[in-house]
Simulated assay, not measured.
Amino acid sequence: MQAVLFALKDISLVQFKNYGQASFRFDQRIVGFCGNNGVGKTNLLDAIYYLCFTKSYFTRSDQQNVRKGAAGFRIEGHFEKQGQLTDVVCILRETGRKEFISAGEPYEKFSHHIGRFPCVIIAPDDVQIITGGSEERRRFLDALLSQLDPDYLQNLIEYNRVLQQRNSFLKSQAEKRLTDRHLLEVYNSQLVRPGNWLFERRRSFLQDLLPLAAQYYKTIAGTDEPVALTYESQLLNSSFADLLHQGREKDLYLQRTGAGIHKDDIDIRYSDLPFKSIASQGQRKSLLFALKLAEYETLRQDKGFPPILLLDDVFEKMDAERMHNLLDQVCLRDQGTDLHHRHPRRPHPPRNGPARR
């Protein structure tokens, strides 16, 4: 029997979304949740995501995940990682205060938890990574790199903090009809340091990730389609300090920072045309899966074990060949995968926990 490298063994929910109180055990490598709409399949996947990322995948506010009529929630799970069992607990108190605890020790900073229990999720709305604005692709990239590198997450937090302060300063200067250029230069220097660090990390990382995603796309599509993915950043052509200096007057006029790594993007082309404009729904989903599988493989290589893979109703609008190729990648290629899959088409919900497949 193959030794377990990483798996979620069980989870319990109290007052979380539509669950009053429920517990589930996972004793198979691949687990499927099936049932009618509204029974809580996606909510269960989101609870697993909470234990890995300290937050919901689907909502920004923790309060939105509290069961109607309740004042808080609790999620608890036990992870087995390389022979060691670790408990993880997320509690939202009645006061709105959130606590996150691992192995009995509360975190002072939730960011310290990210990457300890790696996870990849694929949900229907994730197609926005392909069809939406650049912020969707940056969010995907930041989530992956934050699981790989704690320094990346800390630099990203610092960058966003200074960016918000600089934007608030620009707005205040416009309201007061003042221009404190010395203080603006201070904000510039504070922004440049983490910005340059993040840019170099992204550029180096994407040199490997994007070709891997392109290869996965060909495998899932079953054909050699002319898809190209390229990293785009203003910092590729000019230094960050120069960009901020050159855009100073425009930033003061618009009251926001127009240059920086918060404008980065991944350009996706099909025969030199914008992919999202000409691709079919099946092609868009195939590319989404390719990016997510590249994320999964990158985490597996870095951590030394496969991450948890959560699939939420992923096969809609895919033809049989693409579906088969995707399943071959996530279920058969790597026998270490711990995969949880929400399947909506079975007529009756499970009575005592998720269905095993």
Rank of each mutant, 00 (worst) to 15 (best):
Leu291Gly: 06
Glu295Tyr: 02
Pro106Phe: 01
Phe53Asp: 14
Ser233Ile: 05
Gly132Ser: 05
His324Glu: 15
Ala7Tyr: 07
Ser134Met: 02
Gln2Leu: 08
Thr337Lys: 01
Ser168Glu: 07
Cys52Ile: 00
Phe58Cys: 11
Lys263His: 14
Ile114Tyr: 03
Pro194Leu: 09
Leu326Pro: 04
Ile48Trp: 01
Thr86Lys: 12
Val186His: 09
Gly72Thr: 09
Glu297Phe: 00
Arg25Trp: 01
Phe24Ala: 09
Leu299Tyr: 02
Leu163Gln: 03
Pro150Val: 03
Gly115Leu: 02
Pro306Ile: 00
Ser168Ala: 12
Ser233Arg: 05
Asn155Pro: 04
Leu198Trp: 03
Asp242Gly: 08
Ser280Val: 00
Ser204Thr: 14
Phe33Gly: 10
His324Arg: 15
Tyr50His: 08
Asp10Lys: 14
Glu76Met: 11
Glu135Asp: 15
Thr95Cys: 07
Tyr253Met: 11
Cys34Ser: 14
Val162Asn: 01
Ser280Lys: 04
Asp180Tyr: 04
Arg346Tyr: 08
Ser12Phe: 00
Gly195Ser: 05
Cys331Tyr: 08
Tyr270Arg: 13
Arg193Cys: 06
Asn352Gly: 02
Leu310Tyr: 00
Ser146Cys: 07
Pro347Trp: 06
Val330Lys: 10
Glu99Met: 12
Gln281Thr: 14
Gln215Asp: 13
Leu327Gln: 13
Ala103Cys: 04
Gly104Ile: 08
Asp149Leu: 03
Val162Leu: 09
Arg345Cys: 10
Arg67Ile: 06
Pro349Met: 11
Phe117Met: 12
Ile308Glu: 05
Pro354Met: 14
Asp208Pro: 10
Thr219Ala: 08
Ile130Tyr: 04
Leu163Arg: 05
Asp142Val: 04
Arg248Val: 05
Thr54Gln: 10
Tyr296Thr: 03
Ser168Tyr: 01
Ile114Phe: 02
Phe79Gly: 06
Leu206Phe: 10
Thr42Phe: 00
Met318Thr: 00
Asn18Ala: 03
Arg333Met: 04
Gln128Ser: 13
Ala214Arg: 12
Ile122Tyr: 09
Thr257Lys: 15
Leu288Asp: 02
Ala143Tyr: 09
Asp151Met: 05
Arg74Tyr: 09
Glu136Ile: 06
Arg345Gln: 15
Leu144Lys: 07
Gly247Gln: 14
Arg181Cys: 13
Pro344Asp: 07
Ser12Ala: 12
Pro306His: 04
Ile101Asp: 13
Arg357Trp: 11
Phe240Asp: 08
Asn237Phe: 04
Ser172Glu: 10
Lys9Ser: 08
Leu184Ser: 10
Glu135Leu: 13
Ile266Leu: 03
Ala47Asp: 02
Leu209Phe: 13
